Simulated assay, not measured.
Amino acid sequence: MDWIQQPIAPPAQAYQKKAIKRQQQLTKPASSLGELEQLAVRLAAMQATETPCVDKVWISIFAADHGIADAGVSAFPQAVTAEMVKNFVHGGAAISVLAKQHHAQLEIIDVGVAGSLVDLNIIHQKVALGTANFLTQPAMTEQQLWRALQAGKDTITRALADNSQLFIAGEMGIANTSSATAIACHLLEMNAQQLTGAGTGLDTSGIEHKARIIQQALDKHKNIPSTPLSALQNFGGFEIAALTGAYLAAAQQQLPVLVDGFICSVAALIASQINSNIKPWLIFAHCSHEQGHKLILRALDANPLLNLNMRLGEASGAALAIPLLRSACALHNQMATFAQVSQVSQV
């Protein structure tokens, strides 16, 4: 697993400078297109081109179950994970609709669903039938951690083989907000109350119970090393590990990443603590309604594109941001410069 530590090169500064210069020449007041200008400049640098483009989008959804669900931290039973995977495949989920609308390639990867999905047309990389209950023991073994990370790397190989220009990852797993919250609390040295949110729709008493369970787990594992991989092994879900591996591999291969909500941002936090050079390759799509997301974004010094009070997950928020990136590219590539307008007027 030496690939985890491979270096991440920065986006191409030469193309960044060219993109900035072009933005200054377009027929508009300086900075009048706001964040759209910055998006175009960032994408030009990431793709090392004067004409950035995100027409080919790859979306990977990682699914897994969590032993912590046994502690009653979710509003839904664990069986919902497998049912939602089937819904993804049959086109009935939000991300299925959005991927179709935006002509994105959608794949579903089973990295740890607690049940057999062998009859489904998905990627089968099941590490185990869900993680262990991190309230009583580490969520996964070291070998399981590496297998889940590798599943994330593998999806980048498939995305690049399809000549994808933008990578989006999503997740599905009942109780995975508990896992993500515990990881973030450990890495950021926060208590569970600061970061625990409603997840699948818990009421106030449900959130309080969830926070107590997470804090108990944090106290039990308080002596583990304060490293991202240790936090991931002790508290993480297989899908969160896969997300982390995918983000690292995408940045290593210079593939731009559009990050979804709370859980994906926690995976981005883990990846950034493994290699801080990943940050320029991450575009954050939206600010989730999940309580702790703003704190995670602040820790990452990230400015999300949208704030729609969403908390669905499954890459839905990131998919909604695809048109913004495409518009940013179109404006950058197709608007006239003042010099071009002057030439036309002289004809």
Results as ranks from 00 to 15, higher is better:
residue 339 A to T: 15
residue 41 V to H: 08
residue 224 I to W: 03
residue 129 L to G: 09
residue 310 M to K: 05
residue 299 A to W: 04
residue 176 N to S: 13
residue 248 L to Q: 05
residue 118 V to R: 06
residue 159 A to Y: 09
residue 1 M to R: 15
residue 9 A to T: 07
residue 336 A to L: 15
residue 27 T to M: 10
residue 100 K to S: 10
residue 204 T to Y: 12
residue 258 L to R: 09
residue 300 L to I: 06
residue 186 H to Y: 12
residue 65 D to K: 01
residue 59 I to H: 13
residue 32 S to A: 15
residue 204 T to V: 11
residue 342 S to T: 14
residue 175 A to R: 00
residue 188 L to K: 07
residue 329 C to R: 01
residue 147 R to W: 02
residue 27 T to E: 07
residue 98 L to V: 04
residue 323 P to N: 05
residue 206 G to Q: 06
residue 68 I to C: 13
residue 231 A to M: 05
residue 23 Q to M: 13
residue 250 A to Y: 03
residue 40 A to M: 07
residue 167 F to D: 00
residue 106 L to C: 02
residue 168 I to S: 03
residue 218 L to K: 07
residue 285 A to E: 03
residue 85 V to A: 07
residue 28 K to F: 13
residue 237 G to A: 13
residue 246 A to I: 12
residue 220 K to L: 15
residue 91 G to F: 00
residue 47 Q to I: 12
residue 196 T to L: 04
residue 275 N to P: 06
residue 96 S to M: 04
residue 19 A to M: 02
residue 116 S to N: 15
residue 103 H to N: 15
residue 122 I to A: 00
residue 5 Q to R: 10
residue 272 S to P: 00
residue 309 N to S: 08
residue 46 M to H: 12
residue 48 A to M: 03
residue 247 Y to P: 00
residue 88 F to K: 01
residue 49 T to E: 06
residue 330 A to P: 01
residue 71 A to E: 15
residue 132 A to T: 02
residue 94 A to E: 03
residue 236 G to N: 12
residue 110 D to M: 08
residue 33 L to H: 06
residue 159 A to K: 04
residue 318 A to S: 03
residue 325 L to H: 01
